[in-house]
Design a protein around this nucleic acid. Structure first.
Lengths: 249, 249
DNA sequence: AACCCTATTTGATGCGGATCAATGTCCGGC
DNA sequence: GCCGGACATTGATCCGCATCAAATAGGGTT
């Protein structure tokens, strides 16, 4: 199970917390929540647009409510590497830092639940719970980053693609409901280019390997984006990971 | 400046805190420190030995006092990727998790300042400061992991080596004192194989690229491990990073 | 100083993924 | 239904790094 988010958790059952970001309190500490409520504001960013540029002043922290965003780093000569994939409930920004360290880009239309940084930091100081939650989330992200490093450093192109698919499946909330045995069906939230940036490959190689997995019956494609995975275990075999999945969260 | 460590910070000037791990309190909250004192114990691990295996029960968290340790992940077929490089003052282990997620190996002889997990977690709950510090450190690690991802995904072998050297220079406390203009001199704390594991390369490629940098006068080698960098800016040019260094901490 | 063990260097060759270059396909607008 | 443009596929070739295979150099021991 993924840890609860700081400010929004989709699918969280909590009848007393009609506002999504109330998910912050699994235990419903209502005073703190009222305070968070007062601070928050929403912001919607159209698909393809950059939310913040690396190096920009960033006077807020935020939680993804809906849509998908990415963190990317760019080298002088234009080479880019995605370093974070943000799905609903993920946290953006760093308390205690003024400037954004990465480009944040909306892959689909994204809605953010924002908190101005100063008041948020103040509140963090007064409410240890928030810091605790944030620590948990950050540790989860660090683990994900380290899995990602193994992928970037040591996996073949085919293994990279297979691994990315399992990551998407595992993190897509709408798929958590389906059992693992039947076929899984979903739309890829990323273009081939974004997949390439994620995986440290070129988009041509991504395309070729996706085609290869299709030829081999590991996945079924309908159109460019819609994917069916007839047998999840078969896909897992392609990742190079241990059979038990290695995913810790 | 690197954030202060949780439990040990070399070179920290604090006359009231003779015990290194007292560095936890930049502000010297002595009550908390007395409690930490009571919990801590030291453990020394000889060079080359594994501290914890991935998947093992891990009933402590710790702070590196001296020496160098690594976190590595291994795939079924034996491919390995280093995912963390732990220098003095770095934190090991994850509060709230029973099993180690990675192999922790002592590269040199390592001394750890350990805290049994249960009491430490309890204390964390009572002392928000500790959680705050831990959050800061974790965020720093996450940033480092993301730089590392760019390296693994997009840099050439030569750029990887140059980048590793700058990272070692920047993190080696004993080098922080020297100015950036004169030649820097130090011993590599890693074997060629460990460097390869860090960089997602083979040891042969590491060796070749080190030789190439030597041929080109970017570095000077005395023996196998001792390195002199006559011109740090020249080395920086080889990393592919922005001129300003990109390092945020 | 001779010896041994391991880390490292260097060489020869092959392959996986990058690069360059068309071609094909989907989708929205008119 | 036709068209335009972005996204995606496929093909041909090249190059950087991996792989396999010796040779060499340090560093510690006797």
């Amino acid at each position: 199970m993924r840890a609860h988010s700081l400010a929004t958790t989709p699918n969280l059952k909590c009848d007393d917390c009609p506002i999504r970001h109330r998910a912050v309190c699994a235990k419903c500490e209502t005073d703190e929540l009222r305070e968070l409520d007062a601070l928050k504001y929403y912001r919607t960013v159209p698909a393809g647009q950059t939310v913040v540029w690396s190096g920009d002043e960033m006077d807020f922290v935020a939680s993804i409510v809906s849509g998908i965003a990415t963190l990317t780093q760019t080298m002088e000569d234009g080479r880019t590497q995605m370093v974070g994939l943000l799905l609903p409930s993920d946290f953006v920004g760093r308390p205690g830092r003024a400037q954004a360290a990465y480009d944040v880009t909306a892959t689909t239309e994204v809605t953010l639940c924002c908190f101005r940084k100063r008041p948020f930091e103040e509140m963090m100081r007064r409410t240890p719970n928030i810091g605790q939650r944030l620590l948990e989330m950050t540790l989860d992200e660090l683990d994900a980053a380290r899995e990602w490093m193994l992928l970037l450093g040591r996996k073949t192109a085919r293994e990279k693609i297979a691994t990315l698919l399992t990551i998407i499946v595992r993190r897509d909330a709408s798929l958590q409901l389906m059992g693992r045995d039947g076929p899984l069906e979903f739309d890829l939230p990323l273009t081939r280019e974004a997949m390439a940036d994620y995986l440290g490959l070129t988009l041509e190689t991504v395309s070729r390997q996706v085609s290869a997995l299709r030829r081999d019956g590991v996945i079924v494609l309908k159109g460019k984006r819609h994917i069916t995975i007839p047998d999840f275990d078969r896909l897992l075999e392609e990742t190079g990971d241990d059979a038990d999945g290695g995913m810790l969260t």
